[in-house]
Simulated scan of single mutants.
Amino acid sequence: MKSSPIRTAAGLLLAALAALWVLPAQSAQLVRVGAAHFPPYTIRPENGADTGLLPQLVEALNRSQSDYQFVLVPTSIPRRFGDFKQGRIDMAIFENPEWGWKDIPHDDVDMGLEDAEIFVAQREDGRQQNYFSSLSGKRLALFSGYHYEFADFNADPKYLAKNYNATLTYSHDSNLLMVLRGRADIALVTRSYLFDYLLRNEKVRDELLASQRTDQIYHHYAILRPSAPITGEAFGNLLQRLRDNGELLRIFEPYRIAVMPAPHH
């Protein structure tokens, strides 16, 4: 029995509508973003915690469009390069091309966000800002795997221990405690982290002296694999959308992270 033209047309229409219903979910490109412990940006991602600024940024990116689905993939500060080269992650966010990416094929996108790495010591009678002008003879507490400008971005633990009398940990809290307990003279922390730490630990606010000197300005970039599902230009446009609608300011301003005017491409 032949189908009537009307029945055939209705069937095709239903099939087309069904395809349209399914397409948006299927067509969203999956973009895997490396999440390495780097507080306050990313906090213990291997524990499945959704705290930190990176999860907030990813949520805002996903909310603002439907072409891409950004997902977090836990990695670590030292392991992220290998994960990137092997294609386990497509992007690393809050990075800098100076931090070991030079020999790895990548595209970078200026995120227009600025933070700083600063020096912190115990506040003592008579101690002024000139205490931070020389690191010679001082015991440093550093975050393992970080690239510091004072050490020419050499993150090798043995080099830092030998040349800078450095103790390396995986916790800014531990490093600040070492300073408070007199086990280290200076800790280096991100300005955003120190601001958050002092909000959480108001009782030690008057015991710590933060430097006006910065070790480096964190000018944040996104690092993308050349074959990533999203291009640098497309990602830059998504960030611009969040800049325009105030989402970047909402996420980063509470941590004293500067949201700069749109970067020039």
Rank of each mutant, 00 (worst) to 15 (best):
D115F: 03
K138F: 01
Q128G: 15
F143E: 06
G126R: 06
P78N: 12
K158Q: 09
S64M: 01
H37N: 09
V58P: 03
S133L: 06
N154Q: 08
V120R: 04
T169P: 08
L61C: 08
F94L: 08
P105A: 13
P105M: 08
D115Y: 04
R127H: 08
F153N: 09
D156Q: 08
K102S: 14
D110C: 00
Y164V: 00
A60N: 06
L176F: 05
F132C: 13
F150L: 05
D50Y: 00
D152K: 12
T51W: 04
N96I: 01
D125F: 13
L113I: 06
M111C: 11
K85G: 04
A166V: 03
I118S: 09
L168A: 07
Y170G: 12
Y164Q: 02
D110K: 04
H106E: 13
D107A: 11
D115K: 04
D90N: 07
V120E: 06
K102F: 04
D103L: 14
F84W: 03
N47C: 05
R123A: 14
L113K: 02
I89Y: 03
N130F: 01
S76N: 09
F94N: 04
L160Y: 03
D152G: 10
L72F: 02
A161M: 11
E114K: 11
A49W: 10
R139T: 12
R127S: 07
D152R: 13
R127Y: 08
V120Q: 04
G137R: 01
D156K: 07
S171E: 10
P39M: 01
F38C: 01
F119T: 02
Q122D: 13
L113E: 07
P97N: 00
L176Y: 02
D115L: 02
N130E: 12
K138Y: 05
V179F: 05
Y164F: 12
F84C: 04
G48V: 08
S136F: 00
L142H: 02
E59Y: 05
D173W: 01
S171A: 06
R63E: 15
R88C: 01
V120W: 03
V179Q: 02
D83L: 05
A121L: 05
D110F: 00
P78C: 08
R127M: 07
F119G: 00
A151L: 05
D125K: 14
Y68M: 06
P74I: 12
Q122R: 15
I104G: 10
A116P: 05
S66D: 15
P97C: 00
I43L: 14
Y68R: 06
F84K: 02
T51R: 14
M91A: 15
L140H: 01
R44T: 13
D107F: 13
E149H: 10
I118K: 08
D50M: 10
Q86N: 14
E59A: 15
P105V: 13
R127Q: 10
M178L: 14
R63S: 13
